[in-house]
């Protein structure tokens, strides 16, 4: 039980273009009610969106910290343009709060000062994690497509180096990023003239195959899974394998209730079956998947074998 009590629940950065109002409401509720220990803030997907909510950041940080949450600022995944390079450089210069780096441009700017490694940094193995730790990394979020066996080896290596180890356990998986905006493209626009059409899809724009099977979600330059990752049944094994932080990605569902389901399972206060039922209830109409974790096609839902 001692190990389980140490496991932290985190809330990943909002990947969608939610309005400033929606974000304020969301984080106020997270601060007051969500049983998460750490919250990642900041725009990770599109540098054009940042001005819409940057001004609120200090107040949001203050609000969350006052509620006892650790706040981490996440950097952009794709860095190419001048404004993206500047945003990454500015973030990397911050003394507090902690920062999570998602692009090598951020590693360059940060030097050996402490930082977290984000899920876009491709920390796939123990050699890379050791390299990063030697350069000041204190924590690593593993890539979302890693299977259980590799997670276990990576987590053990990271723990031995004194690093925190994080795995996404809820929400759509990030499957790709691009220089091109697919939201703009879907509406016959270019990225420079997008008119922020992505704001219309707070849980991503659904793509279906031409024979009407749901397949992917478009979120600006990012392509996400149609299914939500759900590793609730796997949390026990993740913790046993050395994962210290479990990441919930914000979706357009009751995230406080989602966090409670995970917290209750970690604390052993409700049974897994009951928690799964409540999670399904919270995410009606959404498919769950755990294929990546089980080394299968990511969209698949692999049933857990009964353990004696």
């Amino acid at each position: 039980m001692a190990v389980r009590e140490m496991t932290k629940l985190t809330l990943g950065p909002i990947t969608y273009h939610w309005s400033a109002d929606a974000r304020r409401d969301f984080y106020a509720r997270v601060a007051d009610e969500a049983p998460v220990d750490e919250v990642y803030l900041g725009e990770v997907i599109c540098s054009k969106r940042a001005p819409f909510h940057e001004a609120d950041l200090p107040a949001t940080i203050e609000r969350l910290e006052r509620a006892g949450k650790t706040v981490i600022l996440s950097s952009l995944a794709e860095v190419m343009l001048k404004r993206e390079r500047k945003a990454t450089g500015d973030l990397s210069a911050m003394e507090s709060p902690e920062i999570e780096i998602n692009n090598a441009a951020g590693l360059f700017a940060r030097g050996r000062r402490p930082h977290r490694i984000g899920p876009f940094m491709n920390a796939y193995n123990e050699a890379t994690i050791a390299w990063m730790a030697g350069q000041g990394a204190t924590h690593v979020c593993l890539p979302g497509e890693m299977p259980a066996a590799a997670i276990a080896v990576a987590a053990q290596a990271a723990r031995e180096l004194g690093l925190g180890v994080e795995v996404q356990v809820f929400g759509r998986a990030s499957l790709a990023v691009s220089a091109r905006c697919y939201h703009a493209r879907a509406h016959g626009r270019t990225k420079d003239n997008c008119q922020f059409i992505c704001a219309d899809d707070p849980d991503g724009m659904p793509l279906r195959t031409t024979d009407d099977r749901p397949i992917l979600r478009v979120n600006g330059i990012q392509t996400q899974s149609e299914s939500y990752i759900d590793l609730l049944p796997e949390t026990g094994r993740l913790v046993a394998d050395g994962v210290t932080h479990l990441r919930l990605m914000p979706q357009s569902v009751d995230m406080v209730a989602v966090a409670s389901a995970f917290r209750n399972v970690l604390d052993g206060t409700i049974g897994l079956g009951e928690a799964e039922v409540s999670l399904r209830d919270l995410c009606r109409g959404v498919r769950f998947s755990n294929g990546f974790y089980h080394g299968q096609a990511g969209y698949r839902r692999i049933a857990m074998a009964e353990t004696a």
Partner: peptide
């Protein structure tokens, strides 16, 4: 972005 794409893994494993 190459090196950041899991589309194939999502459908095929």
């Amino acid at each position: 972005v190459e090196g950041r794409c899991s589309l194939t893994n999502y459908l095929t494993g």
